[in-house]
Design a protein around this nucleic acid. Structure first.
Length: 257
DNA sequence: ATGCCCTCGCCTCGAGGA
């Protein structure tokens, strides 16, 4: 089973790119972030025509998350994290697909640091930790996938020294991610590529793509039984090189059934 | 310290992104 996460940066503006990549990669499950589309404008028909059932939580202009399942209908189990005002921001959706629980999440950016947006990001991580602990305790095979808006270590940043006071790399946020991992989750990409520089995002600015000045911020966290079945974890870097593409590349894992 | 680029809305600039 192939499971992907992709911050599309506007699902309608990116529809042709998304469909081209779906056709090429043929993932079984896809978590999308940054739909930037209200529900009534979500391109459900085009995605269904490509062979995918879908659940989504949209929002006008910003945020928005969706879960796609090839030749299946994802069974939605939750939208919004417990204790978070999900009517205001669409950042979390969860569904059962093929006997797995898939959580698609989009963590707040948190900049500028310091400030209320940064504090909100830390609170969001706390709520994610609380819910993730419950998911682990349930014993279900769980995959947390999405844009975590954190580079976990120096190896995940092209220039760590320049990012010390950025909300994506502040020690408080890296600690929050580390505490999440310490619950018993496996960072799939890092687990299979322990020493490799791997990026999933390259800013549109300053020729970051051409310079390969990237960040690894899109992650898969696997519950223990899923981690044991992990076969591959890859970034579709070439998609970042397409015309009119997202600033993120799709990331995917393959697990044994 | 700021712009650099890009998306969206109903809009011709601002907000947000990371």
């Amino acid at each position: 089973m192939k499971i992907a996460t992709y911050n599309v940066n506007g699902v309608n503006g990116r529809l042709s790119i998304l469909l081209r990549w779906l056709e090429e990669r043929q993932p079984d499950v896809v978590c999308l972030q940054e739909l930037k589309s209200p529900d009534e404008k979500f391109p459900r028909k085009a995605i269904e025509a490509a062979g995918y059932g879908v659940v989504y939580q949209g929002q006008s202009r910003w945020n928005g998350v969706a879960i796609l399942a090839r030749d299946a209908d994802p069974i939605e189990t939750r939208r919004g994290l417990p204790g978070y005002d999900h009517d205001r921001e669409s950042r979390y959706i969860e569904a059962a697909v093929n006997g797995h629980l898939i959580a698609c999440l989009y963590v707040p950016n948190g900049n500028p640091y310091p400030g209320p947006k940064f504090e909100n990001k830390l609170r969001w991580y706390q709520r994610l930790q609380d819910h993730a602990a419950e998911l682990l305790a349930s014993g279900a095979p769980v995959i947390l996938a999405g844009d975590f808006n954190v580079m976990p270590t120096d190896l995940d940043v092209y220039a760590p020294e320049r990012w010390q006071n950025d909300a994506l790399f502040r020690v408080e946020v890296r600690d929050a991610y580390a505490r999440l991992i310490a619950q018993g989750w496996t960072d799939a990409v890092r687990h299979l590529h322990p020493n490799e520089r791997i990026y999933t995002f390259w800013d549109y600015l300053r020729h970051r793509w051409e310079r390969d000045a990237g960040l690894r911020i899109d992650h898969f966290l696997l519950s223990p039984d899923v981690a044991q079945r992990l076969k591959k974890a890859e970034v579709d870097r070439h998609v970042r090189g397409w015309e009119k593409t997202s600033d993120h590349a799709p990331v995917w894992i393959e697990i044994k059934p």
